[in-house]
Amino acid sequence: MKSKFILVLAIFMGLITTFLFYNYMKSVDATKDMNNHLVDVILAKQVIKKNQKITSEMIVVSQVPELGLAPGAIRTTPEAVGKFATADIASGEALLSHRLASEGEEKIFVSRKVRDGYRAVSVGTDFVQSVSNLVEPEDWVDVIFSETQPRSGDYAPINTALLLEKVRVLAVGRRMVETTPEDTYVEYTSITLELNQADAMKLVNAKERGRIHLILHSKIIPPK
């Protein structure tokens, strides 16, 4: 009876050992497969400085084992080109999503949103001038200028003209991203616009001479 029990126990332990060995070999094979399976990853071809905008000439596509792929690694060129680095990136280093940002995603530094050749200039606005505080970052507006002319008798004529057309809005108050349904409404009293240097001076001069109003463009793309 005792020998039969020992035999059954030996068979049971053998089955367990076989099962554990099978699972181990399966995991080893899976690891080998992942090491043999290469995937694309984007590497820096040169040193990329913080705040530098990434171009296709700065990066290269390489292949690495899937198992060695870092979390958040950028795998296609369009994911990187046009974005700016939020930290220095060494030559040969993989580009990671949390170290890149687009102009539209920028929440802290308005200087990162300004395109080359342009400037950021802020003007004070009231509730009506800002289209009832409905203008949002990344909207496009026209700037209308009104100026009171010298009085003629009891009448002081007001001249109104289109000062600037289709200007990009960088920020409203200190907010640089569009409002979401979860955000608490905060009234703002200034708007930051993106202008070339000459238009920025024209806007500041007009603000000193009279009043400006903003006219909001539609974001809806018309059907073809």
Score class of each variant (00 low, 15 high):
residue 134 L to A: 13
residue 19 F to C: 12
residue 176 M to N: 02
residue 211 R to W: 07
residue 23 N to M: 11
residue 159 N to K: 14
residue 130 S to K: 04
residue 210 G to E: 01
residue 77 T to H: 04
residue 37 H to E: 12
residue 176 M to T: 02
residue 87 A to I: 11
residue 112 R to C: 09
residue 182 E to T: 10
residue 34 M to H: 05
residue 198 A to K: 10
residue 7 L to P: 02
residue 112 R to Y: 06
residue 94 A to S: 10
residue 5 F to A: 14
residue 110 V to T: 09
residue 82 G to Y: 11
residue 155 Y to S: 13
residue 65 P to L: 10
residue 203 L to K: 02
residue 9 L to K: 05
residue 222 P to Y: 06
residue 70 A to C: 04
residue 60 V to C: 06
residue 168 R to T: 01
residue 39 V to A: 07
residue 75 R to F: 01
residue 31 T to P: 00
residue 42 I to R: 03
residue 45 K to G: 03
residue 176 M to Q: 11
residue 179 T to V: 10
residue 135 V to N: 03
residue 21 F to Y: 14
residue 173 G to F: 00
residue 206 A to T: 02
residue 121 V to I: 14
residue 56 S to R: 11
residue 80 A to D: 03
residue 47 V to T: 03
residue 212 I to H: 04
residue 51 N to G: 03
residue 143 V to A: 00
residue 183 D to L: 06
residue 20 L to S: 10
residue 184 T to H: 14
residue 159 N to S: 15
residue 221 I to E: 13
residue 19 F to Q: 03
residue 61 V to E: 11
residue 78 P to I: 02
residue 151 R to N: 09
residue 125 T to Y: 04
residue 28 V to P: 01
residue 107 K to P: 08
residue 160 T to E: 11
residue 151 R to P: 06
residue 27 S to M: 11
residue 95 L to S: 02
residue 196 N to S: 08
residue 169 V to W: 00
residue 200 A to R: 08
residue 204 V to P: 00
residue 191 I to A: 03
residue 166 K to G: 11
residue 224 K to Q: 13
residue 27 S to V: 08
residue 191 I to D: 00
residue 33 D to Y: 11
residue 218 S to Y: 04
residue 198 A to V: 09
residue 7 L to F: 13
residue 219 K to H: 15
residue 74 I to C: 07
residue 92 G to C: 04
residue 45 K to S: 10
residue 5 F to D: 07
residue 23 N to H: 12
residue 124 G to S: 12
residue 71 P to A: 14
residue 93 E to D: 07
residue 91 S to R: 10
residue 52 Q to Y: 09
residue 23 N to C: 05
residue 46 Q to H: 12
residue 201 M to R: 13
residue 43 L to M: 08
residue 189 T to V: 08
residue 4 K to M: 09
residue 180 T to I: 06
residue 93 E to R: 02
residue 169 V to P: 00
residue 18 T to N: 09
residue 14 G to L: 08
residue 182 E to N: 14
residue 172 V to F: 05
residue 137 P to W: 00
residue 61 V to Y: 09
residue 128 V to K: 15
residue 220 I to L: 15
residue 179 T to P: 05
residue 81 V to Q: 07
residue 178 E to A: 14
residue 65 P to S: 13
residue 79 E to R: 08
residue 112 R to G: 09
residue 56 S to H: 06
residue 213 H to E: 08
residue 85 A to V: 03
residue 89 I to M: 08
residue 75 R to T: 14
residue 176 M to E: 05
residue 30 A to S: 13
residue 14 G to I: 10
residue 37 H to G: 00
residue 22 Y to H: 10
residue 98 H to R: 15
residue 130 S to H: 04
residue 117 G to A: 11
residue 223 P to A: 15
residue 104 G to Q: 04
residue 1 M to Y: 05
residue 200 A to P: 00
residue 6 I to D: 01
residue 66 E to N: 12
